[in-house]
Structures are given as structure tokens and as C-alpha cells.
Amino acid sequence: MLRDPIACKPAVLAETDQYVAFGSEYRALVGLPGIDNARVWEPEPATVYFWER
């Protein structure tokens, strides 16, 4: 996942043991299972995030 270099567009990430989700606002993620215990944060601009199992 990569965010534009000046963080022009809003973005939010949610991570649990089961999934990684992202959207333009937290409200879009609110229906996900376990969202209350998810790690929720805003990705830094121009920074690559990757996950592997």
C-alpha cells in the first residue's frame, strides 16, 4: 500500500490478525469484524507498507 507523496487524499488503515483494510475514511471500515480492537492509523505519505504471512 502506498500513499501519494503529499497525502493529498485522505486514507486510513485498519489491521488485525485476520485482515488489513484501508479506505478514505474510518466510517467505511466501521462494519468490519473486530474493528473495535483493530490497530487503526493513517499511512504516511510516500511510504511503502507491505504485509506477508
Partner: peptide, 9 residues
């Protein structure tokens, strides 16, 4: 007290 805000604007 406001509960169940669910990311409302």
C-alpha cells in the same frame, strides 16, 4: 453521553 458513533461526521 453519545454511544455507537460509528465514525459519524
Amino acid at each position: 453521553e453519545i454511544i455507537n458513533p460509528r465514525g459519524s461526521h
